[in-house]
């Protein structure tokens, strides 16, 4: 994490979501973070056009978990040519829902107004530009802070979820012991409920709760002599399992 972030909360570097070529000179790059329960979209807007840009706005298309801006984009000053502005947009999860492919895909529409100056007429004119961008968010954005399942409920739920709903993933070449892994995972609200050591393997039983109430149960297996972890994920909505696995990969490697 960076300055001022709780330890363990990894934020991916910004990537370009809307290249300047596709948006008449406006480049949008961004990343996502969950900070003390608040979901944020961190954006950088760069003006690569000759005109000044003003009056920025963003809308989201329907998406799998109802992500939506919780307020307007707070960009109060014009963006001059070659200028970049950084802004954090808080998000809610009460927007309209439509299952996306992939599940964590987010399409957005961005609008800005280009202000052109004409020396000949000694005047300015404006034209509105709308562009569609696309990005994907880590599912950990939706892992809530009260995702530590009651231990008895965990055991009953684990038994109750059929084995067809279990997915297994190998996480290769991780050199962390189980305590370090537990701490890192807790930083993104993956909670360890129990730990057992059987035949030289540490087995961690963990739970995650998504903003929409879906619970995910996991078993993380590690051996001191083997840097490859084995992750088993059980969920009543098994389509989320591979996206939960991606979060394990991301946080354990960073």
């Amino acid at each position: 994490g960076g300055v001022g972030m709780p330890s363990g909360s990894y934020v991916s570097p910004k990537t370009v979501w809307l290249p300047a070529m596709k948006a008449k000179g406006l480049e949008i790059s961004g990343t996502f973070a969950r900070r003390s329960g608040v979901i944020q979209m961190d954006l950088s807007l760069t003006n690569k056009a000759m005109s000044v840009m003003v009056d920025f706005a963003i809308q989201f298309n329907k998406n799998s978990f109802g992500l939506a801006p919780a307020g307007p984009l707070q960009i109060l000053t014009p963006l001059s040519p070659n200028q970049t502005i950084d802004v954090s947009l808080p998000l809610s999860t009460v927007g309209p829902i439509m299952k996306m492919e992939p599940l964590n895909n987010l399409q957005f529409t961005h609008r800005q107004i280009h202000v052109h100056a004409t020396q000949e007429l000694n005047a300015t004119f404006e034209n509105t530009q709308r562009d569609r961008g696309n990005c994907q968010y880590p599912l950990s954005l939706l892992f809530v802070e009260d995702g530590k399942m009651d231990r008895q409920v965990f055991l009953a739920t684990w038994k109750d979820i059929p084995s067809e709903n279990e997915s297994q993933f190998q996480i290769k070449d991780i050199h962390l012991n189980s305590d370090a892994a537990t701490n890192k995972l807790q930083g993104i609200n993956i909670f360890t409920i129990a730990k057992r050591t059987v035949e030289g393997q540490d087995m961690l039983y963990q739970s995650v709760k998504l903003t929409n109430g879906i619970w995910v149960l996991a078993e993380l297996r590690m051996q001191t002599v083997n840097p490859n972890y084995m992750l088993s994920v059980k969920c009543r909505a098994p389509e989320v399992s591979q996206f939960v696995y991606q979060c394990y990969e991301l946080v354990l490697r960073n």
Binding site: L155, A194, R196, M203, Y205
Partner: peptide, 20 residues
């Protein structure tokens, strides 16, 4: 007593997963 039973249940789960 309840805690002991829960601890035991987790141990059984881990055992069953290692030696199915």
């Amino acid at each position: 007593e309840m805690d002991g039973a829960l601890e035991e249940a987790f141990s059984r789960l881990a055992e069953s997963r290692t030696n199915p």
